[in-house]
Design a protein around this nucleic acid. Structure first.
Length: 638
DNA sequence: GCGATCAGGT
DNA sequence: CACACCTGATCGC
């Protein structure tokens, strides 16, 4: 749950995802997506009153988010104050202090966040630097390198701060199978079941939140059916979603919910009470999307877990895993990282401290050129915070990485458009603040900033000419929502519009469709149940066993190979997620590295260059108790 | 009576 | 496991 208070240090006159308290005084509002924990105060009478007296305060969000917001009568009053913005279209917004007329210009770009329909990240560029507010997001490893607006030409933009969805910034959530892997697993399970007869029915036990729609649309498309849901009015203007949903109970796939009773089916009844017309009992399985994580990469990914005679859990995550967050952050290397999710029992300061090692080093602030030729100095000393997180990783069994080997997956970065296409067309807001903003420091940006705001810069892109007060298509584009990764199903209609940059590594990122990944022949196959319901079994994951006590079957069904995934460490021969301390230690001795993000393209330090660093580390180890210092020699053993 | 907040449950 | 949501109790206005 986000505990972000709503305001960013760099641009404190705007509020994001919080609308109460101090945020009542904001000059502009931003809503990343329509989950309730990001809408605090949004329907408050105080804010409503403020809007009625304001000529300039507006709420900015994606088209889809606006649609979803206004679908609820409680928020209908926002209609005239909400300004939807296209994805990937830098837009200039004037922040006006209405009492004094004081004005500040800010350029905002919406980036697809992959969390739920309409969810976006906000990239702000203005006099106080470039700041990225992620909202809630899930972006797969490597995809960040394909987000054009985070780059200037071929370089990563200089990002001052990231306000981060840190939900899974915890090594316990090291890895979560990709969206595609999870989807494929669910598809196979569903397909194997409903193909047996028309009385075989699947109940998707989803939470009462939107965010599962891509699952519904893919299932609907693949099996040429509709999914029964309680209510589809919020999607009434989104045909891409709507066409796969129905309120008609006569279908084989259900995601309906009963207001009260949850779990005393599923084998006998559906929440909607639907039965077969001829009285034949339905054969129902339930699939509960859950976040399942893995301590390390293994050859196989277990995305479906059987938890009962007819119940399953399927891996599903709305948020980036620990390794995805590390990938994201070490690629962008912001100066500051502000977590927006603080786990119970931890403080903001603690989480911020844990994120310090992924911030750009202060010593690099002046010398650093993103993706430039400067070499990282070996003299970089680990901070106290880095040591802390290093020890933390050791204790919980996280892979400890060598700074020389931690380089973000830059080689995967596809060629970005030539620099001359980089100037972003700025657009005016409807406060008629059309004058150019020449605060831009990047020379690459100057053309765009000073250009005619209505000029079309690049015909290869869609026109980004944005006049906010004119009628545009009011149909939110569902596919806008998706991140650059696309689902492997080639029939998918949900390919990315936002993938404006060529993606030669797409097959690696999505992975699972490469034939060789299916052909290693290491699966152990066996029939699973009496219904000829064939799935693939693997050995149990010991830490899942507690969930599976009622099952007489192997508790883990391997439905899908792990895709690709070479970038996040060495496969273990150990299937367990949770390692003992000893295992973690020996692992760290084997890999003997630790986790400082390195400048992309920097050369690998030689062992002799690393020695002073490790000496420092060993010396600092004395700050800790003796059992930690006993680990120090392993650091020196490379 | 309404809204905000919290605890507890799914 | 955790998320996002709902319900009901409590409190303050």
């Amino acid at each position: 749950m986000s505990s972000f208070a709503g305001r960013m240090k760099e641009y404190p006159t705007i509020s994001l995802d919080r609308f109460d308290r101090e945020n009542l005084h904001a000059r502009a509002y931003f809503l990343s997506h329509c989950h309730k924990d990001h809408m605090k105060g949004l329907k408050g009478p105080a804010l409503k009153r403020k809007l009625q007296f304001s000529r300039t305060v507006r709420l900015y969000c994606s088209f889809v988010t606006k649609e979803l917001l206004l679908s609820s009568p409680r928020y209908a009053f926002w209609e005239e104050y909400t300004v939807p913005l296209e994805l990937e279209s830098p837009t200039q917004i004037s922040l006006v202090e209405e009492t004094t007329g004081e004005k500040e210009d800010l350029v905002v770009t919406l980036l697809s966040a992959g969390h739920c329909p309409g969810s976006v990240m906000f990239l702000f560029e203005g006099s106080q630097g470039t700041v990225l507010y992620t909202g809630d997001f899930r972006i797969s490893a490597g995809d960040i390198s394909r987000m054009e607006h985070l780059h200037s030409g071929s370089r990563v933009k200089d990002i001052q701060s990231i306000y981060l969805d840190s939900t899974f910034y915890d090594p316990r959530f090291y890895r979560i199978p990709t969206r595609e892997t999870c989807l494929n697993g669910i598809m196979e399970l569903v397909g194997n079941w409903i193909s047996q007869s028309s009385y075989h029915v699947v109940w998707l036990n989803c939470k009462a939140a939107y965010g599962y729609e891509y699952l519904f649309t893919h299932l609907g498309k693949r099996f040429n059916t509709e999914i029964h849901v309680n209510n589809l009015t919020m999607f009434k203007k989104m045909p891409d979603i709507l066409s796969y949903l129905t309120t008609n109970r006569r279908t084989q796939i259900h995601a309906c919910r009963h207001p009260r009773s949850e779990d005393f089916f599923p084998s006998s009844r559906l929440p909607c009470g639907c039965t077969a017309a001829d009285g034949t009992p339905l054969r129902i399985i339930s699939i509960k999307p859950s976040t399942i994580w893995f301590g390390e990469r293994t050859k196989k990914t277990n995305v479906i877990i059987k938890t009962g005679a007819s119940s399953f859990r399927a891996c599903f995550s709305f948020h980036s895993s620990f390794s995805e967050l590390k990938d994201f952050l070490s690629y962008l290397q912001p100066v500051n990282i502000h977590p927006s999710v603080i786990p119970i029992g931890q403080t903001l300061a603690e989480v911020t401290n844990m994120l310090k090692p992924l911030c750009r080093k202060q010593s690099e602030v002046y010398r650093y050129k993103p993706l430039g030729v400067l070499k990282r100095s070996v003299a970089t000393q680990p901070t106290y915070g880095e040591l802390l997180i290093w020890l933390f990783c050791l204790l919980v069994g996280d892979k400890v990485q060598n700074p020389a080997e931690t380089a973000p997956p830059v080689p995967e970065k596809p060629p970005l458009p030539p620099t001359d296409t980089d100037p972003q067309p700025l657009t005016c807001n409807y406060l008629d603040c059309t004058e150019s903003n020449d605060d831009e420091e990047d020379e690459e940006e100057e053309n765009g900033a000073k250009g005619d705001i209505t000029e079309e810069h690049d015909k290869s892109k869609e026109s980004k000419k944005t006049t906010l007060d004119e009628n545009r298509s009011t149909d939110p584009k569902w596919e806008d929502f998706f991140t650059t990764e696309t689902l492997p199903d080639s029939q998918s209609s949900l390919t990315s519009r936002s993938c404006s940059v060529p993606s030669p590594s797409l097959s690696r990122a999505t992975g699972s469709q490469t034939p060789e990944l299916f052909s290693d022949g290491e699966e152990e196959e066996s029939a699973v149940n009496e219904d000829n319901f064939s799935l693939t079994l693997s050995a149990s994951l010991s830490n899942h066993s507690s969930q599976n006590q009622e099952s007489e079957l192997a508790d883990t069904l391997v439905l899908q190979h792990e895709n690709s995934g070479s970038e996040c460490g060495n496969p273990r021969n150990n299937d367990n997620n949770v390692q003992t301390e000893q295992e973690a230690q020996s692992e760290s001795q084997a890999s003997s590295d630790f986790d400082i993000p390195s400048t992309p393209e920097s050369k690998k330090p030689r062992p002799d260059e690393l020695l002073p660093l490790y000496r420092k580390l060993a010396a600092a180890g004395e700050m800790f108790r003796s059992e930690t210092s006993s680990r120090s020699p392993s650091l020196l053993s490379i």
